[in-house]
Design a binder for these strands. Structure first.
Lengths: 194, 194
DNA sequence: TTTAGTCATTAACCAGTGTTAATGATGGTA
DNA sequence: TACCATCATTAACACTGGTTAATGACTAAA
C-alpha cells in the first residue's frame, strides 16, 4: 500500500475492499507544485483532480474587470480541483495556485469515473465528498448572510488557523468579500477596542 | 405506480429497478400545507424530508437579533428539508414555511436511509442530490462575490421567474442579502436609467 | 364601511466600504 | 549595498447601504 494515510482517511467514510484500493492506487500519480505554480487556470479542460499531501492552494476566479475573488483555500488532506466544473463537465472558471511548495496525489477524471460502477464504496465516497462540499458552502452562505466583516474574519481564523501568516492579508480580504483596505481598517478598529 | 412523474424525475439520474421503486413508494406519504404553515422550525428534530408536488416554500433562519435571513425558495419538483442539518444529524436551524397552499410527498429519514444498502441506485441518487445542492450553493457564492445588488436581483428573476409576484419584495431582498429599503432604492434607480 | 395589518416607497441621517493615492515595512535579487 | 516588488496601513473623498420614520397603496377582517 503506497498511501496508508490516504486509505485511513477514506476508510473513515466507508469500508474499501483491499482489491478496490489497490486498483485505485494504481491510477494515482504524484506531483510537486512550486510556489506560485498553477494546478489549473480558467479555460483549462478539467481532466484530473488531486488530494493534497502537504502545502496550500488558493482557488479563485476573476471578474469582468480582471479583479480576483478567492473562493477558498485548500490544505493537507483536502480534495483539490475545479469540483463544480468537473460535475458540470465544462472548462474551468477557476484558477488554482500553489501558495507554497506543495505535494499532491493526482488522478485522472476518466480513470476515476469507472470506479463508480466497480464497487458501491466509490459511490458512497462520491456522495460523502459531495455532501461535505455542500456543507462548506452552506456554512459560507451563513457567514455572508449573518456576519459582518470582523466576525467573518474571526470565523476564517478558526477554520484556517494554521494558515494565518502564510496567506497575505489582501487575499484573506478577497475571501471575505471585501477590499484589503476595508479589512485593514476593520482590524485596526478591533485592535483599538481591545 | 402512484407517482409516475416522480419516477420520471428520478430516472433522469439513474435507472431504478421497479421493485426498488415500489418499496420506495410504499414509504411515501402525502401532505398538504396551507399558506403560512411550517414544514419545519428551528429546534425541531429533522425526521423527514419531502418533494414538492406543487406550491412554494421559503427556507430561512433568524440571527441573534431576531432578523430573518432567507436562504432560498423551493418550488415544484424540488427537494424540501433541512438538508445540511440532516447530513449533520443536528436539530434544524432552518424555518421552512409554505408561501401558498402546497402539496408535498413526505418520507421519513429513517425509512429512507436503509435504501442506501438495498441497491446502488439510491447511493447514486444521494450523490447526485448532494452534487446538485452543492452546485446551487457554489452559484450563490459566485453571485455574492462578483455581483452587486441589481445584478443579483436579475439573476434571481432568471432563476425564480415563475415566483415573481408570489414572493413579497422584502423577502427577495433578504435572499439577496440586503434590506427591503436598499432593494427598493436600487430598483427605483435602475428604472430611471431605463 | 371602518379598522388593522402588510407592504413598497421615499427621505434624512449616519456608519461603513470602495477607490485612489501616499507612506513605510519587508524581503528577495542584482 | 542599492534596487525592486509585494504588502499593510492610513487618509481623503464619494457613494452605497443600514436605520428609522413617515406616507400611501392594498388587502382582509370586523
Amino acid at each position: 500500500m503506497k498511501y496508508p494515510q490516504l486509505y485511513q482517511q477514506f476508510s473513515q467514510w466507508t469500508n474499501i475492499p483491499t482489491d478496490q484500493w489497490s486498483m485505485f492506487e494504481s491510477k494515482l500519480m504524484e506531483r510537486i507544485f512550486s510556489k506560485g505554480e498553477y494546478f489549473l487556470q480558467a479555460g483549462d479542460k478539467v481532466l484530473e483532480f488531486g488530494i493534497i499531501l502537504n502545502g496550500i492552494f488558493r482557488l479563485y476566479y476573476t471578474d469582468k474587470n480582471g479583479k480576483e475573488h478567492i473562493k477558498t483555500f485548500r490544505k493537507n488532506g483536502d480534495l483539490l480541483g475545479a469540483y463544480a466544473e468537473m460535475l458540470m463537465n465544462i472548462p474551468s472558471r477557476t484558477y488554482i495556485q500553489a501558495m507554497e511548495s506543495s505535494k499532491i496525489i493526482l488522478i485522472n477524471k476518466d480513470d476515476f469515473y469507472p470506479f463508480y460502477t466497480k464497487h458501491v464504496c466509490w459511490q458512497i465516497l462520491g456522495r460523502i465528498a459531495a455532501e461535505r462540499h455542500f456543507l462548506s458552502k452552506e456554512q459560507r452562505e451563513f457567514e455572508f448572510l449573518q456576519l459582518d466583516v470582523i466576525e467573518r474574519y474571526q470565523k476564517f481564523c478558526d477554520e484556517f488557523d494554521c494558515l494565518i501568516g502564510k496567506i497575505p492579508q489582501h487575499q484573506i480580504a478577497s475571501y471575505l468579500g471585501v477590499t484589503p483596505v476595508a479589512l485593514s481598517r476593520v482590524l485596526s478598529r478591533s485592535r483599538k477596542v481591545k
